[in-house]
């Protein structure tokens, strides 16, 4: 373990190794590491940005969907109103038409029953007259008792 020339030999070896490392090993390796670190950092930042953008887009989409839903609801509501109006109008129309038809029918019935009653009355009057004629035969003078018979016919 004597100190001899080896000491200087090792110093020279060491110096050469350090020089080589400083010149050819450290710079390219460090450059590669640092550039990769930068790439990774950029990538992470880009991912973060994309995530933010996605979140914004999501909220925009949700907004749009909400708006569309509201619009659809409004449209349905309007349609319902319109439908109700139409139905109501149709109902009213139908009622009015029915009433009209009824009135016409009623009028016809009225006039027909009037006519029938008129005919009936006359027939009854004639019958009564003929009946009375049969009962009274001679005693009633058609001409003399005309107004009496008429009044009777009217009363029936």
């Amino acid at each position: 373990m004597n100190i001899n020339l080896t000491f200087f030999g090792q110093m020279i070896s060491f110096g050469i190794l350090v020089w080589f490392t400083m010149k050819f090993i450290w710079p390219p390796l460090n450059a590669a590491i640092e550039s990769r670190q930068k790439t990774i950092a950029d990538g992470l930042a880009a991912a973060e940005r994309a995530r933010q953008e996605l979140k914004d887009a999501d909220s925009r989409v949700a907004d749009e969907i909400r708006k569309a839903r509201e619009e659809a609801t409004q449209i349905v509501e309007r349609a319902n109103q319109q439908y109700n109006q139409i139905v109501d109008k149709a109902k009213a129309d139908a009622v009015a038409e029915g009433a009209r038809q009824k009135a016409i029918a009623q009028a016809e019935i009225d006039s027909l029953s009037h006519q029938a009653r008129e005919v009936l009355r006359q027939q009854v009057a004639a019958l009564a007259v003929s009946g009375a004629e049969k009962i009274l035969k001679r005693e009633i003078d058609q001409a003399r008792h005309r107004d009496l018979l008429d009044a009777l016919a009217k009363e029936i």
Binding site: T6, G9, Q10, S13, F14, I16, L17, F20, T21, F24, I25, W26, P27, P28, L29, A31, A32, S35, R36, T39
Partner: peptide
């Protein structure tokens, strides 16, 4: 001592040197 250390030093610098030369980001 000198030869073994020199060989080992060379192993180190050649190994790291080759990796450094081909280093990619």
């Amino acid at each position: 001592s000198w030869l073994v250390s020199l060989l080992l030093g060379l192993v180190f610098v050649i190994w790291f040197g080759l990796k450094a030369r081909k280093a990619t980001a």
